[in-house]
Design a protein around this nucleic acid. Structure first.
Lengths: 135, 135
DNA sequence: CTTGACCCTATAGCCGCTATAGACAGCACG
DNA sequence: CGTGCTGTCTATAGCGGCTATAGGGTCAAG
């Protein structure tokens, strides 16, 4: 193994990604197939590491793999308009904010329901089940 | 079809659940298999409707099908302690609140990133991609 | 020369549905 | 009676984003 080349486990450690996940990303074409060593091991270079780092960062930001695919493609074409990137980001942010609002409404309702528990009772007079049951 | 009996489509309309989903719930044992009509159509009674309504309500509250299974089982046993129900609800609420916190952190980061867009530029000087790319 | 850590492929499973295909039931209209 | 139409039936595969399992091969250290 030449200087600077990384095995899949090295890549996994560097990016805190599981080995199987890296292979999965390759299978779905999110990462290019790397060259293979004599023993048929995947052998990565620094660029591959950078690409995976970018993917991981995007995943941490909650982007879908499909979005990441687009972002990667955009990032390779210097001439494309930056507004495409902005659009993807803005749409994702909006989706996250919608999800937060939904979950907050949910949390309030659950709090309301949970607060009804008198404690120590049996199912027959459970006010939580009562609250859940549609009337 | 006797008075008061419902076909799967009726159940679907009443509960705003898709027909395929009802069949799916039956397959995984969340709903009991109903009797069949002469033409092999599923035939539901009012109790089945109530049960599905309960399931739907729980889904709307974000409970997993596994949780719903437990809640259904608990609700059938009058003697069981209500605290079991409270536990499931409280754990779910805690999970929802964790998720909200995670998403809020995410939203803040995305806002920070999106605000860097100067508009009108090209990928080569895209400050969003810059912000996403790990250094 | 064996042990153990790592790597390989291929396949199936997770959740909660959704989609597709191909066939049968039941009713209205001509 | 036939023809359409809508609704229902079964069975199977697919979605996203992994994760788990089985059954091997590779390689460096002791």
């Amino acid at each position: 193994m030449k200087h600077g080349e990384l095995k899949i486990g090295d890549l996994a450690r560097e990016t805190r990604t599981k080995v199987v996940t890296i292979r999965y990303y390759e299978k779905i074409g999110l990462l290019p197939s790397p060259v293979r060593s004599a023993g048929n091991y995947r052998s990565y270079d620094a660029e591959a590491l950078e690409r995976l780092r970018f993917v991981r960062r995007c995943r941490d930001l909650g982007f879908s793999l499909e979005n990441i695919r687009e972002l990667l493609e955009l990032s390779l074409d210097d001439e494309r308009a930056c507004s495409d990137v902005d659009e993807i980001t803005a749409a994702h942010l909006a989706a996250v904010e919608r999800k937060i609002a939904d979950l907050q409404a949910l949390a309030h309702e659950l709090q309301r329901i949970a607060s009804r528990c008198s404690g120590g009772g049996t199912i027959s007079n459970c006010r939580i089940l009562d609250a859940i049951t549609p009337h």
